[in-house]
């Protein structure tokens, strides 16, 4: 009598694969947050002894004050008037730097709207503002101290 060999089929059980995958999906969906990863960039000058000092009279001074008030070179202006004014100045001297001063009491949004406007200069007036300087309060006070103003 011949004994018939019983065949054992080898297989990997994949029934739970979908369950595991779904668990992983839920994990990634819950933990991944759509975060803002874009913003306005600006480079700070490299700290060296040859850093040129920007004099106020050689530059365009933009003063952002509380409540959307803006003064450019001491004259009150609206947002729409700033770029044409700068364009005029840049025609005389394309390297003219712009100093963006903001009052401590103004909001961050006031400042960033003006900064955004200045960065749009190549598109709006066809000229790039090569230097935008954002001095901090300490730096402004240091400059005043140089002139003997407290």
């Amino acid at each position: 009598m011949k004994l018939q060999k019983k065949r054992i089929e080898s297989e990997i059980f994949t029934g739970s694969m979908a369950d595991i995958s779904f668990l992983l999906i839920i994990y990634f969906m819950v933990t991944s947050v759509f975060s803002a990863t874009r913003g306005l960039d600006f480079a700070l000058p490299k700290q060296s002894t040859s850093t040129p000092e920007i004099k106020q009279e050689d530059s365009i001074d933009i003063h952002v004050m509380q409540g959307d008030q803006i003064k450019v070179d001491g004259k009150p202006m609206t947002m729409d008037q700033i770029l044409p004014y700068i364009a005029e100045k840049l025609k005389q001297n394309p390297d003219k730097p712009v100093i963006l001063r903001t009052d401590p009491d103004a909001t961050y949004n006031n400042m960033i709207q003006v900064f955004d406007l200045l960065r749009q200069a190549p598109d709006k007036i066809g000229m790039e503002i090569k230097t935008i300087s954002i001095p901090t309060q300490r730096e402004i006070q240091n400059v005043w101290a140089l002139f003997g103003v407290k």
């Binding site: 401590p104 009491d105 961050y108 949004n109 901090t136 309060q137 730096e139």
Partner: peptide
């Protein structure tokens, strides 16, 4: 956006 600029100023400094 509504924070006072003095806080941002300190961080920039």
């Amino acid at each position: 956006k509504d924070t006072k600029y003095e806080h941002v100023d300190k961080v920039l400094d």
